[in-house]
Design a protein around this nucleic acid. Structure first.
Lengths: 224, 224
DNA sequence: GCAAAAGTGTTCTCTGTACACCCATGT
DNA sequence: ACATGGGTGTACAGAGAACACTTTTGC
């Protein structure tokens, strides 16, 4: 590979050295619907389009740190599941490199930034409008990855409150996978994996039998 | 994320805008040993250390194209399995972003570039010396990914010749996984997956019973 | 005939899936 | 009493893992 001749900065630096963007797909489940956090662009290009939160990487900040910071700026959260997703090329049609991440947050803990410009908001993943910079591609990829990961990891811990009922957990899974799950099989599997444990407390809400509360044994990523 | 103020290019461009490197982990199996292609560096930093082939991304070349080109430059091969691996940050201690790929080649088809400098060579993955730019990390990651993928995809097609025996295939799997496999279970699984088919020809080599030759039905990536 | 590698089946365990009814509470 | 959601068990099918001997060839 020819080294990018960085000595000759004068001529066309934007054409020789690609810009590096960091994008974060922040997902949550609100009322049994999988949603993604988007910000409304207040500048060109794509002014007034919605897009994923992110921006150009400025040294000396490391990639992961930039993703964590962006997540924190939009939601106020730092201690959530976050992983690198994929690195896209030329989403903007100008040769930039976009390193993408995806994060899972509990929507009640997330306090969305309040701004006059670049305001963030939650959007149902199903039925998104066309987004800036082909961000739809990135979101599809993130959802695909999340669906796969639900099956062999405990990442859902990052979507739910500390304590939750098995029904809540199941509804979160169903919202993400977009298909119904069998109640008995779901409970059997969750319990046999040993990743959750009953807390002993009960949630008595609604006019029905009160239900057992559970918590994840580990609030950090575990691969089965 | 603060936009990297690209207007002020004059001062310290190398500090503000990260360099983007593309690295390719080219793996093969030679005589039942998993090997990786490394090139001997002929310039600072890390002169005379071995490192993964790669270089800085120069626009307008897209990321994937750079990886394909690099692979072709080193091995002469273009039609092999190649996928993006992960994007590392700061492997060089100077804040660069390294987008890494991994490729699988059949070592007899690969014609290594012959040069006086930056000469490539195959190295057994087990027992590598310390490489330039923490490249050992990248190789470990690639091997991990390859091991996982063997289990649920047909990527091995890219490691073997057009026709091969089931014993050859099994030895390739064993070399990569670094553990012995049961012959009967291996054959049963490979055949029941329907990804390979007997060609009808036999390989009569050596002083033993001649064996059936097989070929992958599809020489392109398939996920089970 | 012997050395070398090819080829071949059965059993068991575990996991995933399909499936329907009773229970505890609030109103 | 009834409406609402919580909670529970069994049976079947398919996949993976363990395991040993016979066959065909070259020498």
């Amino acid at each position: 590979m020819a080294a990018a001749r960085q000595g000759s900065q004068a001529t066309l630096p934007a054409v020789q050295v690609p810009a590096v963007a960091v994008l974060v797909v922040i997902l949550t489940v609100v009322e049994d619907v999988l949603k993604v956090l988007l910000v409304r662009r207040s500048a060109e290009p794509f002014r007034d389009y919605w897009s994923l939160p992110g921006g150009l990487l400025a040294l000396p900040e490391p990639l992961d740190a930039a993703a964590v910071r962006k997540l924190e700026e939009e939601t106020g959260l730092a201690d959530v599941y976050l992983e690198q997703l994929y690195t896209f090329c030329n989403l903007d049609g100008r040769g930039s490199v976009a390193v993408t991440y995806f994060a899972l947050v509990h929507h009640q803990r997330a306090k969305l930034a309040r701004r006059t410009d670049w305001q963030p908001a939650w959007f149902p993943v199903a039925g998104l409008p066309a987004l800036a910079f082909q961000n739809n591609l990135v979101i599809d990829y993130a959802v695909q990855r999340l669906r796969a990961k639900l099956d062999y990891s405990n990442v859902a811990y990052s979507l739910l409150p500390e304590e939750f009922t098995l029904s809540q957990l199941q509804r979160a899974y169903e919202a993400i996978l977009a298909r119904p799950l069998d109640k008995r099989n779901f409970r059997k599997r969750m319990l046999s994996l040993g990743i959750i444990a009953a807390t002993g407390r009960r949630a008595g809400e609604g006019r029905h039998r009160p239900d057992q509360l559970y918590a994840f044994r580990e609030r950090r990523p575990i691969i089965f």
